[in-house]
Amino acid sequence: MEKTFTEKIQINKRNKIAGLYPATKLQIVILFSISTLIINSIKLTDAKLALLLIPWFALVPFMFAITGEFKKSMKSMKPIFVVAIFIIAVQTFIVSGGQTLWHWHFLSIREKGLQTAISLGFLVLNIAGMFTWMLQSTSTKEISRCFEESGMNFKVAYIFTSSLEMIKVFSKRSQTILDAQRSRGVETEGNLKVRAKAFFPTIVPLILGGIIGSEDRVLTLEARGFSIKGEHTHLFDLKKSGYERRMLVVSIIITLLIIAGRISLWRMK
């Protein structure tokens, strides 16, 4: 039998991890971030480096893999890698203080620089990486629905989704305006003054159109019963994959183990 339209708009994920309830994913990310911060406080070697953060980062690609989104997620990690590499490079070679560990011509690595390099670089990689896992495996439709199900006002969900769509609309519109300007001979290349001049006539009509349009949209939404009191129906049904409890329990156990490890290290001292 042919599917109904209501069935067609549902999201059905085969992968149980990808299909985790969005709030559960967030809980996992938070537990992971706490663990990361605790691990960061464990300093190894004489130079006091948070070296454990490096193997800990393996968990990020591992999560990508078991979610079945490895390639896509790794690709969106690119800007994060750039930031992390930048941080590590700058801190390693520029920050002074402590013993000199390595020296070659004008480059030198000092203890303090390396400490912050590894700490900050891998904190960013780990935490931003886990957020990437959550966000790449969850559609915005699921996030928006989850907002509402966790008790937030439906207006919050509306603004969230609407903003995303508005970004798409505006990006397209700015491209159109920019193209139109080019065809009218407005320069978008060349020196700074020329390029700066192209910015203004592109952004102004966008804002203006947006503000006038939102007035009409208020009425459109009112006409569709937006602010009606009472229970709303939701055609889109946010499902749980059934692995929520399991994943959460595993995450909690790992976090507790890390806390225990941290405490026992203090005791040993």
Binding site: E165, D216, T220
Partner: peptide, 8 residues
């Protein structure tokens, strides 16, 4: 401006 702006 007549569409809700949130539906796919």
């Amino acid at each position: 401006t007549q569409i809700s702006g949130i539906k796919n």
